[in-house]
Design a protein around this nucleic acid. Structure first.
Lengths: 146, 146
DNA sequence: TTATATGCAAATTGTTTGCCTAGGC
DNA sequence: GCCTAGGCAAACAATTTGCATATAA
C-alpha cells in the first residue's frame, strides 16, 4: 500500500468521497455510481471501481468485505463492526471491541500469526420489525443465538 | 426452507456429500467440481451449483459466506468459526463461542432483533510462515490487532 | 410412467482492463 | 506539455438459468 504518492484532485473523486462519507449507508459500487451520476451524469462505472480501489488504498474510505455478493464501502475509516438487517439490507455501525483477547490466545492454540478478524452481527432492524418485513432467504453459515 | 420434501438419491449428490464431508477443506464450487469429476467425469458445473444450494438447504452441508469472491462449502454443519490464512487461503475450523454476551446486549442498545453473527479470524498459517509466503493483497475492512 | 435431475450452453451479475482522449498540475 | 484520470466497451470470473434428455421412484 503506497500511501505516500498523491492522487490528483478530480471532480469524480471529490464527489465520490463526499457521497460515501455524507451518510452512513455503506453503499455498494453501483449505489455509489447512482449517487455520483446525479451530480456527474457522464461518469462511468469503470471510474467508480478504479477510484473506490484507489481511495480505499489511500485510506480516504474503507472497503468492507462483508458476506454477500456485492462489496460495500464505508466513509468511516475507523475500525468498527457492523450490524446488518437481513430483511432490508441496511448496515449500521456498532462500536464494541470484544475480541482482542482471542487474537492473543489463538496464536498459542493454532500456530497462526493472527492479523485481524472480521465480525458482523445479523438481525432485523427496528423499522423492518415494525413493518413485518422478513428475511428473504435463509442465510448460510449463521451462528444463530441459541 | 422446506426441509420436509425429499431430494432424490442420485450419484451426483452422494459423491458430492462424500467429497465435501471427507476432509475439512471448505472447498469452493469449482474445487468440488474437480473432486467430483474424478469419480463422475461427465458431471457439469451447473449440477454442482444446483446441488450445493439444495444440499445446504436440506442441512446436509453448510454454505459459508466468508469474505472473498468465491463462496465455500463445509461438511461440518455445526456452528463454528473459521480461521483463514491470508497467504494460502486455507480455512481452518476453530471452536470458541465468545459472542453470546453481545447477542444479548445488542437488542437493548440498537433495537435490532439479533439472529446471529459471522466471525472469522485472519492470519498466516504455520506452513506459510515457514515458507515465508506473504499476504498477496492488503485486505480491506480488517480489524487488526493493535 | 412420471416427475425430478442432469448435461450443455447461453445468460446474468459484479468487477476488471485496454485503449484513446480529456484534463489536472 | 506531460502524465494521470476518465469514458467507453470489451473481457473476465463466479454463478444462475433454459431446455431437451436421462434417470430415480
Amino acid at each position: 500500500m503506497n500511501e505516500t504518492c498523491k492522487l490528483r484532485d478530480t471532480k469524480a473523486r471529490r464527489v465520490m468521497v463526499d457521497e460515501i462519507c455524507k451518510g452512513c449507508s455503506h453503499p455498494t459500487a453501483d449505489e455509489v455510481y447512482d449517487l455520483v451520476r446525479k451530480r456527474l451524469p457522464r461518469i462511468s462505472l469503470g471510474t467508480i471501481y478504479r477510484n473506490l480501489e484507489l481511495l480505499s488504498e489511500k485510506g480516504l474510505i474503507q472497503k468492507l468485505d462483508l458476506a454477500g455478493t456485492q462489496r460495500r464501502y464505508d466513509g468511516n475509516t475507523e475500525n468498527h463492526y457492523h450490524l446488518r438487517c437481513l430483511a432490508c439490507g441496511l448496515v449500521k455501525d456498532i462500536i464494541i471491541h470484544p475480541l482482542k483477547k482471542w487474537e492473543r490466545l489463538l496464536p498459542q492454540d493454532t500456530g497462526y500469526e493472527i492479523l485481524g478478524h472480521r465480525l458482523e452481527f445479523l438481525g432485523i432492524c427496528p423499522s423492518c420489525k415494525l413493518e413485518k418485513r422478513t428475511v428473504q432467504s435463509i442465510l448460510p453459515g449463521l451462528n444463530a443465538a441459541s
